[in-house]
Nucleic acid binder design. Structure first.
Length: 443
RNA sequence: CGGGGCGUGGCGCAGUCUGGCAGCGCGACGGUUUUGGGAACCGUAGGUCGCAAGUUCGAAUCUUGCCGUCCCGACCA
């Protein structure tokens, strides 16, 4: 820690209104550059990358192709789809030195469709799903809540291309499955809810919402949906029936946002299961048919040899927003409580008596043992009192802490403490590392 | 865009009404004593008081304009 950049704040910055924003600032994860635009400091950047990595793994598992498109796009493509005017003030428009109209991409349907139409000719090259994780800019009227509603934000956005509606619906269902697993892995209970389609358009859409007091959306649902779990279920993402069954399982119980809420249908649920809450939107999937492929001429030749516009869908996960959403869902009065899967470090090592030969060498050895076991440790080797070190560890929310004290180390014992439960075990260092290795296995 | 705040050292704030040496707490740095839940003492550094113009002998303070930022509303894949 003496070599790390971790600017902890004892006092809460005045501008932060919600708990995730306060904790991210206090834990030195982010720093505001301007309204709705943030720098990700080393600790925050670690979390952001872990979230992004889980997103990638689950996309690739579902058979989707990672790529990277630019943030700056030519305006002409957007004129072609008709959205250059439609998108309005929320789109940041820029011109280059030659006076060409450019824009900072708020989404990528136009660009991906342009790539597709230039390269794909036959239905035999379908189905195809391309995605990337890239920074977006939407010039919100009023950014707020830190990274939860920023203007610049990191988003995974994907686009599927299918020969007909039936295939595209399978792509939709497959995305539902991959998204459910993605959120589960982050320790979140994200509920798919029927959604409005907004300016992206289309007639088939679900949003994924994480329950949180501070959420911007009011939601209504049958609490049976909270019991659903994908867990370790092995899923063949190419199997239409399997994906459709999971889709039906998760969209069976009533779950709607304010915008699509149907009080009559909600009223038919047994009263004890009727639940109202606030929630944070962390993703959305759409099927929009030929909305972009028709005006932009993205066609393939079908099995009968005739050109047909491809059926498309798009899907988004708010990667940077998730960092905030996870904190909203997992914190206590002392600080953040990271799920094992996204924690910036696996274990914090607290040397209670810095400068004591016994604790110094034991702490250094445990640090090396942890690294040898494939773990990321953070060693608090600062000349601070124990209380300050504990408070820092609690604030930054690492799931585990190893405490190295002079009394214990004389008999070769350290303490392994869970951030979530506070439970403490007294163990030899090797045993503590072994327990951690098992706790993180598969994450 | 409408309404309401705020802008003074890294952070949190007082000082502005009523013009007169730019302050407090935390943090940082150095030293000493400490070390099992945010230590104590001594010392040090750090400020174009958001920017510009104006009024005045004199402006953080008054006037005007601008900028930034936060909150409520409208907006929001």
């Amino acid at each position: 820690m003496s070599k790390y950049f971790l600017p902890i704040l004892k006092e809460t910055p005045a501008e932060a209104q919600i708990v995730s924003h306060r904790l991210m600032l206090r834990a030195g994860m982010i720093r505001q550059a301007s309204s709705g635009i943030y720098s990700w400091l080393p600790l925050g950047y670690r979390v952001l990358r872990k979230i992004e990595e889980i997103v990638h793994e689950e996309q690739i598992r579902a058979g989707h192709n990672p790529m990277l498109m630019p943030t700056l796009q030519p305006a002409d493509l957007w004129r072609e789809s008709g959205r250059y005017e439609d998108y309005g003030e929320e789109m940041l428009r820029i011109s280059d030195r030659h006076g060409r109209d450019m824009l900072y991409g708020p989404t990528n349907e136009e660009l991906i469709t342009d790539i597709f139409r230039a390269t794909v000719r036959s239905y035999r090259e379908l189905p195809l799903t391309l995605y990337h994780v890239q920074w977006k800019f939407r010039d919100e009227i009023r950014p707020r809540f830190g990274v939860m509603r920023g203007r610049e934000f990191l988003m995974k956005d994907g686009y599927n291309f299918d020969v007909d509606r039936e295939s595209a619906i399978h792509s939709y269902n497959r995305h539902m499955v991959s998204y459910i697993r993605t959120y589960e892995r982050m320790g979140l209970k994200a509920i798919p809810m029927r959604a409005d389609t907004g300016p992206i358009g289309g007639d088939h859409s679900h949003e994924f919402l994480v329950l949180a007091e501070t959420g911007e959306s009011a939601v209504y649902f049958d609490n049976r949906i909270l019991d659903l779990k994908l867990g370790d279920r092995v899923v063949d993402h190419d199997d239409r029936d399997v994906c459709a069954a999971i889709m039906n399982e998760w969209t069976g119980p009533y779950a709607r946002t304010e915008e699509t809420h149907d009080p009559a249908a909600f009223g038919k649920i047994p009263e004890v299961r009727q639940t109202m809450s606030r929630a944070i939107e962390v993703g959305q999937i759409f099927y929009f048919g030929t909305k972009y492929s028709e005006p932009m001429g993205a066609t393939v030749v079908n099995a009968e040899g005739r050109p047909v516009p491809v059926h498309m869908g798009s899907h988004g996960i708010g990667v940077s927003r998730l960092a905030g959403a996870i904190i909203e869902a997992s914190h206590d009065d002392r600080g953040i409580v990271w799920p094992e899967s996204v924690t910036p470090f696996h274990v914090g090592i607290v040397n209670l008596k810095q400068g004591d030969g016994g604790t110094d060498s034991a702490s250094a050895r445990i640090y090396e043992l942890a690294k040898g076991a494939g773990l990321d440790p953070l060693y608090d080797d600062r000349e601070e009192r124990a209380g300050a070190k504990f408070a820092t560890m609690d604030l930054i929310g690492l799931p585990w802490r190893i405490t190295v004290g002079p009394k214990g180390i004389r008999s070769g014992i350290v303490e392994l403490t869970s951030r979530r439960t506070g439970e403490t075990l007294e163990l030899e260092p090797e045993m503590a590392i072994e327990k951690l290795r098992l706790a993180y296995a598969g994450r």
